[in-house]
């Protein structure tokens, strides 16, 4: 069972409220994807690391309220019904998918207005990386020598992850992480927004401005939208360790420079601590994160792909 989050049982300081009750994608635990009940693992995978090694999490808390993240595929989420619930997965029941892209999307948008906080191209790259991270997290893919390699063709329980894995597996000639990031970044924002929309976490608002029309995905419940921010911000500022999901999420946050917003005003050692925590991710994820950071940096250097920013 996933180590629960201490914050789930305590008040969250700062503007964000903790989720009132476990519900929907934000309120239900997902099990450790490496545990026996999770997605079947590739034969080449490493042995699951023992969870007990997380010494900083109090033993009592470990059996308290479940981790308020992840989404049960076969559970009945709030309407509208998720298409995933119709998928008859071969995976064992109650398999939950690590919805990293959803949480990164929440971090990258204002929790009440849905206003984007990141430049569109950086958000696209970050969310593309998050979609790949979901697959790497569940050992469906590995990243080595800058290439993405599909190691498990078992259908992920999540529709979007399924699509992405299908695209990855469908390319005869393998591509580099950078190519996949560039490719997925073209649609990642919309795809992740649609995933949140399907579960009722956001609603669409269209505004007409002069000649263009802009679409904003406004969170339906701001405390749910603010939860990843509150969780990461609090834990990092208090110097507490992160669980595996949050470690990857924090890595994505660093790669897209969002950490400077999440940790705004925090002392330098908090930033240094964050880098150290991210550095313990497994090689595949670490490579993905560093390639994402490089892609974001390169986008700054070449930077002509910014039609919306031109005068």
């Amino acid at each position: 069972m996933q180590a629960p989050h201490p914050l789930a049982a305590q008040a969250t300081p700062g503007p964000a409220q903790p989720p009132r009750a476990p519900r929907g994608a934000m309120g239900v635990p997902y099990p450790d994807p490496r545990s026996a009940a999770a997605v079947p693992r590739p034969a080449a995978g490493r042995a699951p690391a023992p969870l007990q090694s997380r010494a900083t999490v109090p033993a009592v808390a470990r059996h308290a309220t479940p981790e308020p993240r992840g989404r049960p595929v076969t559970a009945s989420p709030p309407p509208p019904a998720h298409p995933d619930s119709l998928v008859q997965s071969t995976a064992p029941p109650r398999t939950r998918w690590p919805l990293l892209a959803d949480d990164l999307f929440r971090l990258a948008h204002h929790d009440t207005t849905g206003r984007p906080l990141l430049h569109a191209s950086v958000a696209g790259l970050g969310l593309a990386a998050a979609l790949l991270a979901e697959l790497a997290f569940t050992d469906a893919i590995v990243i080595e020598n800058g290439q993405v390699r599909v190691v498990s063709r078992t259908a992920p329980p999540d529709v979007l992850a399924h699509t992405v894995l299908g695209q990855l597996a469908g390319e005869v000639a393998g591509h580099t992480v950078r190519t996949w990031l560039a490719f997925l970044s073209q649609t990642s924002h919309e795809q992740v927004a649609l995933r949140l929309l399907r579960l009722g976490h956001v609603r669409v608002e269209t505004a007409r401005r002069l000649l263009t029309r802009s679409t904003t995905y406004v969170p339906t419940e701001s405390h749910v939208a603010a939860w990843p921010w509150a969780r990461l911000s609090t834990r990092l500022r208090q110097g507490k360790s992160l669980d595996r999901f949050d470690t990857v999420l924090a890595g994505l946050m660093v790669a897209t420079d969002l950490h400077r917003r999440v940790l705004d005003g925090a002392p330098g050692h908090v930033f240094a601590g964050l880098r150290q925590m991210v550095a313990v991710a497994p090689p595949s994820l670490r490579l993905l994160l560093s390639h994402t950071e490089a892609a974001v940096g390169d986008a700054v250097l070449t930077g002509h792909k910014t039609p919306s920013q031109h005068m």
Partner: peptide, 13 residues
Amino acid sequence: MSVPGPRIPASDV
């Protein structure tokens, strides 16, 4: 259920 294997005219990407 599994994700389909490589298809031939590939490179959408």
